[in-house]
Nucleic acid binder design. Structure first.
Lengths: 136, 136
DNA sequence: CCGAAAGACCGACTGTCAATCGGTGTTACG
DNA sequence: CGTAACACCGATTGACAGTCGGTCTTTCGG
């Protein structure tokens, strides 16, 4: 019935690291990113620049010129990105059987610690409350 | 601090459909799979066979000979596969900030319906109970 | 025992995409 | 105006998936 295509647009190795760097430091100048990630890898500044540009073209980074150089900065937060990713994955995987997914997730959360489990509980409770007495 | 590589081994288009077919019908003979998925696409039986084989090599399908032909069957359940996928994704994404993830997930679950939200609640409650009074 | 039919494999191509550079313009500044 | 710094474009390499064609092997009715 449901053919599940399964198509997430993930990032490559370098791309991921670059995004993380930019997300962490909140900003990304080619030189800086290269010093932090490129140099250790022994790759050219050029490569880093291309990657930054690709990320920009993918809409994950924003950039603006300062003098004649570009300065990049995140366009979507790490959270938003992850959120979207998980959303897509989940959407594609679960085409009906949300059950399996939910329990799978609880498993994961549990592994992350009891505190997270409790946090999850609180969140769910809140949502349900909003639904119940909520408007809409 | 944490560089998040981000590497999920997803399946291709055809591969996904084949897996779904096998999961649904519980079984996969080349001919059958081809009739169901290949023919409509206008692709050769050969292509389907290659795909089945690749899936087998990836460990997702098992197979055994019946006469001189192979009959495939799922080696991991759809649930297990999804579980694993989500687990990897989550594991790679969240390297510390489990928070964002948890709330993101609740969002998704909510979108799936209140019933799922309640199911989630029940599950969490159960886990917490097990932890509390549980052995270990 | 023999040949056709069914099926499994291997090798080869194409297309997509990330990672990488080199080479070539461009621009800000002393 | 020359140079250093930087942006871009184009090309290459290395995965992979999707697709086949060609070929070797096994099974089975005569």
């Amino acid at each position: 019935m449901a053919s599940v295509p399964l198509h997430l647009s993930l990032l490559g190795e370098l791309e991921s690291e670059v995004m993380n760097h930019v997300w962490s430091t909140g900003q990304g100048e080619v030189k800086a990113v290269h010093s932090a990630l490129g140099a250790p890898r022994g790759i050219t500044v050029n490569t880093v620049q291309s990657t930054l540009k690709r990320l920009y073209e993918k809409g994950l980074l924003a950039r603006h010129k300062v003098s004649h150089a570009y300065v990049y900065e995140p366009r979507v937060s790490r959270e938003a990105f992850h959120h979207g990713l998980i959303g897509k994955l989940v959407g594609q995987l679960v085409n009906g059987q949300a059950d399996a997914l939910v329990s799978a997730f609880v498993d994961l959360t549990e592994r992350a610690g009891v505190d997270q489990l409790q946090r999850l509980e609180a969140l769910v409770a809140e949502r349900l409350r909003q639904r119940d007495g909520g408007s809409r």
